[in-house]
Amino acid sequence: MTITPPLSRSQQTAEEILEPTPMTKLRRRIFKNHSFLIGALILLVIIAIAVLAPLIAPHDPYDQDLARRLMNPFWHDKKTDSLFVFGTDKVGRDYLSRLIYGAQISLLIGFLTVLISGIIGTALGVIAGYFGGRVDMVVNFIINTRLAMPVFLVAMAAVVAFGASIHVVIMVLGLFLWDRFAVVMRSITMQARDLDYVTAARAIGCSTPYIIIREIFPNVLSSLTVVATVEMANAILLEAALSFLGFGVQAPTPSWGLMLNEGREYMFFSPWLLALPGTGLFLLVLAINLFGDGLRDVTLERER
């Protein structure tokens, strides 16, 4: 039998359970979860870049100069310029600056879309899950109607109808990506509704809004954030795809998807025009997914 240094039992009274508080446990688990830490780190770096864009971007991302078009990035030998680290695009705009401002666009679209769709979906889901019955049936019908509509086609149609702009993209995505929020929130709220502490809250006279906001909502928050990360990655990719096809953000705004489109014709001669915004998108979506996965592990374990 292995003998390890014993804990001093005399220091504790017999009735004590040595369990840390929920917050301490959560903190410990966060520092053990590598995917969460890596995802959070990359995400923080990208967010910092986006927020500090005016300070760190070396040039104005809209500043054209045909004389210096298609400069090579620093790892090439010929036709480089130390002022343009990642080279320039077909109209001579600094590619690094456009990439930095592109992060702004992607994150902005991601956050705002998730905010709008999150509010719609959570409200519908929580209401359906808590009240059940007829309300649930109506909400289910709305969810099914929404699922029957192809996001991409409707988004393209909306852009054609209202004109292409970043606002239209955000509104369309926000009004369409709430289905997963609604489905997940509905089922979680249904489970939470039957927990004894919710019944106890009703018995001590809490009102329904109070129960939903103070007793149920904090306990579905972790699942909500996990869905939010998935939807955010989804929204960013959809925006990139729409912009790539010309139905999203319009030139000259520096969106990564639009940059991919603009670089398409130079794919074989200047592949970095595609590779750089592609890497940006890849890193951002990867970071968000790692973060979301890690968050799920960290918080779900807490509930176990």
């Binding site: 014993p6 039992r9 017999a14």
Partner: peptide
């Protein structure tokens, strides 16, 4: 009275002590 002691590590004290 009291509670079951936790069974981590070797028992130094009496298991039923105080109960």
């Amino acid at each position: 009275p009291g509670m079951v002691p936790s069974v981590v590590n070797d028992f130094q004290s009496c298991r039923f002590g105080g109960r």
